[in-house]
Design a protein around this nucleic acid. Structure first.
Length: 382
DNA sequence: AAATCTCTCAACCGCCGCTGT
DNA sequence: GACAGCGGCGGTTGAGAGATT
């Protein structure tokens, strides 16, 4: 009878049996571990040394803490990952009782997904702005424009009510602007992209869309994009904010540097407080215990390094926010498409929910920070 | 109730760095 | 310096459990 593939070379593979576990435990209790190569033979196990070491380190070790990760542990993992990246063993060293394998698994199956849901790039820990999230943000913002932003609505009557075609065109415009870093020469020349052509075919929308897009820069005077086109690219609000941010960071005078800082890579979105008014970030941070957690000196020092790094990336791209549709679509795991991601995130009960999402810290704060809500239907559109 | 899909996580694999010879 | 052995690390896989249709 042929040996199964898991027993070639006389070495067993696959799941450990209770008997094997007991043999390993007994041996290590008597002789200690180490010498993993010879251990299995001495312990009477038909396993390779590596397999024994892994089984011991990840499962049988007496000091291993089992069970779900606590709120604090999850927070620590996110913070440490923002600094260390995928250095699971180093992260594990800071979480007593947790193994690198366990943390790695937890990251890949839980935290990573949560961050993606909330529009955060799990690699850079910065907002992951893409067209679909943009749709959600735009939708939310346009439906909730505070009184002081009483720009002409796209419908022409009172509050903005945008139909799907308007929203699509708006997004297209935004994308084309972003992709060209608001370069006035490009915007004004005749080499129009498909999206520009699309826009031009909808003349009833274009100017108002441009103005509406500008309205999404609350810290800037209300200047139309066409006026912006006249300006040099290095004076566009995105680049200016990038430069200011960089300078502040270089001078170490950032009062708050958190993963939620709107000064980071998503500078043109704003917050509403409970009265529906735009809030200053520091004010928000002071009034939110959740935000305060990430405003500690400890966290600032951890995060500043990443901010600098990301800011450099941003500047290398001439200040344009780092998003593009193609990379989004190619990088998004099939199991969490942008559309399903947004829809599921939109239902997150981060305010007073009782589901597991309640445990979201980073993600919930990102939701609060960017006011991302359910703006999409099942098709991913309005 | 059955089939199918999705998720989780233990375990494996290949690579890398360190150490001793 | 070159080589071999070993332990450790991070990425990936796949079986089983649970959820959904």
């Amino acid at each position: 009878m042929a040996k199964s593939s898991s027993e070639k070379n006389g070495l067993k593979k696959g799941p450990w049996t209770p008997e094997e576990d007991q043999k390993l435990i007994d041996y290590i209790q008597k002789h200690g571990h180490g010498k993993w190569r010879t251990l299995p033979k001495n312990a009477g196990l038909k396993r390779c040394g590596k397999s024994c070491r892994l089984r011991w380190a990840n499962y049988l070790r007496p000091d291993i803490k089992r069970g779900r990760f606590s709120f604090e542990e999850e927070e620590a993992i996110i913070q440490l990952h923002s600094v260390l990246g995928n250095k699971w063993s180093t992260i594990a060293a800071n979480l007593p009782g947790r193994t690198d394998n366990e943390i790695k698994n937890y990251w890949n199956t839980h935290i990573k997904k949560k961050l993606l849901k909330m529009g955060i790039d799990p690699v850079t820990h910065t907002p992951r702005l893409d067209v679909l999230q943009l749709a959600s943000i735009l939708n939310t913002s346009l439906y909730n424009l505070p009184p002081q932003f009483n720009y002409p609505s796209l419908s022409g009557i009172g509050r903005s009510v945008i139909n799907p075609s308007h929203m699509l065109s708006l997004l297209t415009t935004l994308l084309s602007c972003q992709n060209r870093n608001y370069n006035p020469d490009v915007l004004n020349n005749n080499q129009l992209s498909d999206s520009d052509t699309l826009l031009q075919n909808q003349p009833q929308c274009s100017q108002m869309q441009l103005d509406s897009i500008q309205a999404f820069q609350p810290n800037q005077p209300h200047v139309s994009l066409q006026e912006n086109h006249i300006a040099k690219s290095n004076s566009n609000p995105l680049n200016m904010e990038s430069q200011v941010m960089k300078t502040k960071l270089e001078n170490h005078i950032i009062p708050i540097a958190t993963p939620f800082s709107h000064q980071n890579t998503l500078p043109n979105l704003w917050l509403y407080n409970s009265e529906g008014h735009i809030s200053d970030l520091p004010t928000m941070a002071q009034s939110s215990s959740a935000m305060q957690r990430f405003s500690s000196p400890k966290f600032n020092s951890i995060y500043n390094n990443n901010l600098l790094e990301n800011q450099n990336l941003c500047n290398n791209n001439e200040g344009a926010p780092n998003f593009n549709l193609s990379s989004l679509l190619s990088s998004t795991p099939s199991s969490s498409s942008p559309i399903s991601t947004l829809n599921s995130s939109s239902s997150a009960t981060f305010v007073n929910g009782t589901t597991e999402d309640e445990r979201d810290t980073y993600g919930s704060n990102m939701l609060l920070m960017y006011n991302i809500s359910n703006g999409l239907n099942d098709s991913g559109l309005l």
